[in-house]
């Protein structure tokens, strides 16, 4: 079932890229099979993200992308740039590899934050303005990412 779904997605991607031309399947078919196989190996430990749940994430994602870009643009355009760069750490509760990658990538799209490094569960986040605590925002994002992969988060143990 999972394999069928995966193949369907990659077939769809190939049709978008190469069009309907039947000759293109000489390359397309091996590529689709190979991609499905690689995906299966890499995503072994992660649940498949649900399509509907990804669509539910989309409005938030687009809004935050826009806010992130607008925020950094505002800072750059001030004659005296309003930045106070610095680092903060965040303990991540997500356990699936795919969910973690998505979380790290999305941090970089939130306004003013950039995932810089990761040691086990601890993420080092670089901030354009390090005087604010971004823990609540990151926890909110983490909750939304966990929802895509159907993962349950343990409550935060503040240290």
């Amino acid at each position: 079932m999972a394999i069928a779904r995966r193949l369907l997605v990659f077939f769809g991607v190939w049709i978008i890229l190469a069009g309907w031309d039947p000759v293109s399947w000489v390359i397309g078919l091996p590529a689709v099979l190979f991609a499905s196989w690689v995906y299966g190996r890499l995503a072994e430990d992660s649940a498949a993200p649900g399509f509907r749940r990804m669509f539910a994430f989309l409005p938030f994602f687009l809004r935050e992308s826009f806010r992130g870009g607008a925020d950094v643009a505002r800072r750059i355009l001030r004659p005296r740039m309003r930045i106070k760069p610095g680092f903060q750490t965040y303990r991540m509760r997500l356990s699936q590899p795919a969910a973690r990658v998505l979380f790290l990538d999305c941090i970089s799209l939130l306004p003013g934050s950039l995932s810089a490094d990761r040691h086990q569960d601890v993420i080092h986040v670089h901030l354009l303005d390090a005087s604010l605590d971004v823990t609540p925002e990151l926890a909110d994002l983490e909750r939304r990412v966990a929802a895509i992969f159907g993962e349950r988060l343990e409550p935060h143990a503040y240290v």
Binding site: S65, F66, G68, G69, A70, D71, V72, A73, I76, S108, L109, G112, L114, H126, L128
Partner: peptide, 10 residues
């Protein structure tokens, strides 16, 4: 890096 990733993608 902030400027690069966010403004470019947007």
């Amino acid at each position: 890096l902030h400027a690069l990733t966010k403004t470019d993608n947007l």
